[in-house]
Simulated assay, not measured.
Amino acid sequence: MSLPVGAFTAAAPAIQRRLRKMSKYPREPRVFSQAKLLIPVGALCTSFLLIGSVIVLTTDEVPDPVDKMLFLALISFGMFFGVLFLAHGFWRRFGVDDQKVWSKFGSVFYREIYFSEITRVTFAGISFGVFACNKRPIALGINRFDYTLACLRILEEMRIRRFTVGKIEPNDPRWPEAWQDMRNRLAAEAYRNHQNYYDSHPVELQELNALAVGRYPSGSQRPSESSISAWSSAGRLS
């Protein structure tokens, strides 16, 4: 009987979204970590494999030296991933503030992109990608973390600047449609993450509505229901 791998894969985004730690306020700067998951898993995996290696080395259950070396090689391979989980849990961090998105791994590397530097934005179903000249791109894993502030800041940059969407550049005839579709997706993500907040704060919902169409908010206090419908449709995960 085969495992329903397809079902697990399809369910993974929804499970990840439920496990995210959400902010109360959409524009709250965030620092993200998976330490609560990766450290216990890494510690458990490493401990079991370390015990296994001691057993292999100190007993005669595996008398053949070749088999013993093979077992040790497999255990070492597994321990590598256990240590990798621990390292990511202790030192891997991601973040967003009003000026930039960033990621780092301890003192090994640090990467940041300011929103004012963005030259290209992509959407891959499970993440937005932000690009800047002469910098490595940063993926915003929307199922793992609450990147609402990043979505809002990108929308604000899209209101005053033009840049590439996916592979479509501003001089491409398809660009206006792709540009609006990207705005819809970003607004949909922000609204879905904080629907209760926006529904209870009509002025900020009006601002989000204006960002979704690339305008500044008008004097009207009533948000566009048709825009909200468009955001939800554009932002729905496949």
Results as ranks from 00 to 15, higher is better:
residue 90 F to N: 03
residue 85 F to N: 04
residue 3 L to F: 12
residue 210 A to K: 07
residue 33 S to H: 06
residue 72 L to K: 00
residue 139 A to V: 01
residue 5 V to E: 04
residue 236 R to E: 13
residue 28 E to H: 14
residue 235 G to C: 06
residue 95 G to C: 01
residue 21 K to I: 05
residue 161 R to M: 06
residue 75 I to T: 06
residue 71 F to N: 14
residue 117 E to T: 09
residue 130 V to W: 01
residue 52 G to I: 07
residue 124 A to D: 09
residue 97 D to V: 00
residue 138 I to M: 12
residue 105 F to H: 14
residue 119 T to E: 15
residue 182 M to K: 04
residue 136 R to I: 00
residue 186 L to S: 02
residue 31 V to E: 15
residue 159 R to Q: 14
residue 201 H to A: 08
residue 121 V to T: 08
residue 167 K to T: 13
residue 73 A to S: 14
residue 28 E to R: 09
residue 214 G to W: 12
residue 76 S to N: 13
residue 110 Y to V: 09
residue 232 S to F: 01
residue 53 S to T: 03
residue 63 P to S: 02
residue 130 V to R: 00
residue 211 L to A: 12
residue 174 R to Y: 08
residue 133 C to D: 06
residue 132 A to Q: 15
residue 42 G to K: 06
residue 169 E to G: 09
residue 152 L to E: 12
residue 184 N to W: 14
residue 148 T to N: 02
residue 213 V to N: 14
residue 174 R to P: 01
residue 104 K to Y: 05
residue 204 E to N: 11
residue 35 A to E: 02
residue 128 F to V: 08
residue 228 I to S: 03
residue 49 L to D: 13
residue 205 L to I: 01
residue 167 K to N: 13
residue 202 P to Y: 04
residue 126 I to K: 08
residue 164 T to H: 10
residue 120 R to Y: 05
residue 216 Y to A: 15
residue 188 A to P: 07
residue 5 V to Q: 03
residue 27 R to N: 04
residue 144 R to G: 03
residue 57 L to A: 10
residue 79 M to F: 03
residue 174 R to N: 10
residue 202 P to E: 07
residue 77 F to L: 15
residue 87 A to K: 05
residue 130 V to F: 00
residue 225 E to F: 04
residue 31 V to C: 08
residue 132 A to S: 15
residue 153 R to I: 05
residue 173 P to Y: 09
residue 200 S to T: 02
residue 38 L to W: 00
residue 103 S to K: 14
residue 120 R to C: 12
residue 40 P to W: 03
residue 149 L to Q: 07
residue 192 R to L: 14
residue 3 L to T: 12
residue 3 L to Y: 14
residue 147 Y to P: 10
residue 195 Q to L: 01
residue 183 R to P: 06
residue 68 K to G: 12
